[in-house]
Amino acid sequence: MKNIFDEDFLKRLEHLRLVSRKMRAGKNSGERRSPLKGQSVEFADFRNYSSGDDFRYIDWNSYARTEKLFVKLFMEEQDLLLNIFIDVSKSMSWGEPPKERLALQLAAAFSYLALAAYDRVAIAACSEQLAAYQAPLRGKTGIDQAWTFLGQLSFAGSTNLNQALREYGRFSRGPGVALLISDLLSPHGFHDGVKFLQYLRQEVIVLQLLAPEEINPTLHGDWRLLDSESGESREISASSRLLKAYRKKLDDFTEANRDFCFRRGIGFLQVSSATPFEELILQLLPRAGILA
């Protein structure tokens, strides 16, 4: 997997930081601000002294001016748990270029960025169930491990994100950021799964990967379409009207997902698998507010 990035690109990645719109409490002090006030150098606020407070934090200068005891509050810096959920169903290996390639690149990039920022990264592979799980890794030493895990993933089986995400509940280690990378093309949908993640206090980001042929099919004539996962067939006469209806359907589908995500405070981005990775990392993701 290392050959996905050259050194120059890795350096540029280092400058990017994952931002989470809400600050999450973590187990270890990290480089990320936490909504909990704690021991850091960054001043946050004052509050009245109450008995039991550590009087090391009393602001004596204020006491001198006002003869009242105030306690200084500081922002506590915590580490972040990034959970990457990658769809490894058969449909992800379809497309030109295959969606799995970009999915792996993204997972690799996010885990690199997170680990480089002293955050923790866990990776879950989802198909009809939770296919594989990498427990949280920490520090730059985890990068190799994460990439190795990603490199060993095989794309097969059908998709049932709800089921897979529900199974993740067993491994949940507290609040964090959940990044779901999938084509979302599943009759079961993903809403229940995402809602479950939110229940697990995850800030969810959904990246929908679609192949160009899925976004804008160029079929012509009579076709028997075979589902890569279920093997089911569907006969169509590809007319311009049908293709138009398909595009309309896709737009509606995307819009419904976007709407769902917006209402639940979930980040959502649909990406073509043909999008150059650099453009995605350096432009699209920052623009969507997923990367700073």
């Binding site: 899925e214 890569s228 067939s233 049908l242």
Partner: peptide, 20 residues
Amino acid sequence: RFQEKVISSTYLWEEVLKDM
């Protein structure tokens, strides 16, 4: 006679055909 083609998922196509 239909030409066969494997696609990622017939999920959307089915929806479209059902609608039409």
